[in-house]
Computed example of a mutant assay.
Amino acid sequence: MGYLNNNTGYINDLLATRAVIKKNNFAILPPDGLVKNVLPGFENCDLTILSSPQLGASFVDYLVTLHDGGNNRCGFGGEEVETFFYVISGQVCVEADGQRHTLTTGGYIYCPPGTLLFMENANQGEDSQAFLYKRKYQAIAGYQPHLLVNHRDNLEKVHYEGMEDVIVEDLLPKDLGFDMNFHVLTFAPGACHGYIETHVQEHGAYILSGEGVYNLDNNWIPVKKGDYLFMAAYVPQACYATGRGEPLSYIYSKDCNRDIPL
């Protein structure tokens, strides 16, 4: 198995962690302590399973490090399963539905249910890292999602809730065919949410840059680049960006466009 940070043996300190796990409520997973998971179809890749149903999520999030030649040529996803792949660093060739694209840092692909995603590191001998997501698609009559490939550079930067120092980017269309979306939320140092949110949507979030303090179920907890957060339905949530000059920015998923079944 092994640790994601590749540190082995004893540490010169007491055993301690910033991880906080409240199943069916919220979780914070820092990089230290995360382990590598071996999954069928992935070759020369380190994978860490972040959120999962065992934690209380309706989706599965992964952190994928593709080493030199790292790939999945078997295909990821399948019937009734939608997938999303975002390049955190490096360069990855992806293929889906006969279309082949090279994604650089900030590039992403969404695959609708039934469309397999193939990937291969294209970073000329260097590692690439990506955020990977899968979820069972909730179909409704008359609507369906479609394959989408894009890059953050092409997205509109919108002032979140009218606040000039907070920017939100919508990665997927606001279309009823999609039962979820991905966003990137960026806070300048000192910026924050306008209020502590409480809502039915759940989130899985990966911090791309910066530092901050996050309120999760009225616990203010320091977070920083490389941390992963899970937020279950209705958990109170908000953050302040801190740090020195670097914005707090994170990518996160959100279920949407569907009524609640009884």
Rank of each mutant, 00 (worst) to 15 (best):
L4I: 10
N5T: 09
N6V: 01
G9V: 14
N12Q: 07
D13C: 00
L15I: 15
A16M: 10
T17R: 09
V20S: 12
V20P: 05
K23A: 14
N25L: 14
A27I: 06
L29P: 00
G33S: 13
V35C: 12
P40M: 14
F42Y: 13
F42S: 07
N44W: 07
C45S: 15
D46I: 12
D46C: 10
T48N: 14
S51L: 04
S51T: 14
S52V: 11
P53Q: 07
Q54H: 02
L55S: 13
A57W: 06
Y62E: 10
Y62V: 00
L63Q: 07
L63G: 03
N71W: 01
R73H: 03
G75R: 05
G75D: 13
G78R: 11
G78M: 07
E79N: 13
E79A: 13
E80W: 07
V81Y: 10
F84K: 04
G90I: 03
E95W: 03
A96Y: 05
G98C: 09
Q99C: 03
R100M: 06
R100P: 00
H101K: 14
L103I: 00
T104Q: 10
T104M: 01
T105L: 01
P112L: 09
T115K: 11
N121H: 12
N121S: 15
N123W: 05
E126V: 00
E126L: 08
Q129I: 03
Q129N: 06
Q129H: 02
F131Q: 05
K136P: 00
Y137L: 05
I140N: 12
A141P: 00
G142S: 13
L148G: 09
V149L: 10
H151M: 01
R152G: 05
N154C: 05
K157Y: 08
V158N: 07
Y160K: 08
E161Y: 08
D165M: 10
D170Y: 02
L172D: 04
P173Y: 07
L176D: 15
G177C: 02
N181V: 02
N181C: 04
F182T: 02
F182L: 07
H183V: 01
V184E: 08
G194E: 05
Y195C: 04
E197R: 09
T198C: 10
H199F: 01
H199L: 04
V200C: 03
H203A: 01
G204Y: 01
G204H: 03
A205S: 14
Y206H: 08
S209H: 03
G212F: 06
N215H: 03
N218C: 09
I221L: 13
I221M: 10
Y228W: 12
F230P: 06
A232Q: 01
A232H: 01
Y234L: 13
Y234M: 13
Y234Q: 11
V235Y: 01
Q237P: 00
A238V: 05
A238I: 06
Y240P: 02
G243N: 08
G245W: 03
L248Q: 07
Y250M: 11
Y250F: 15
I251K: 08
K254S: 07
N257I: 15
R258Q: 10
D259R: 06
I260E: 14
P261W: 14
P261Q: 15
L262K: 11
L262W: 09
L262F: 10
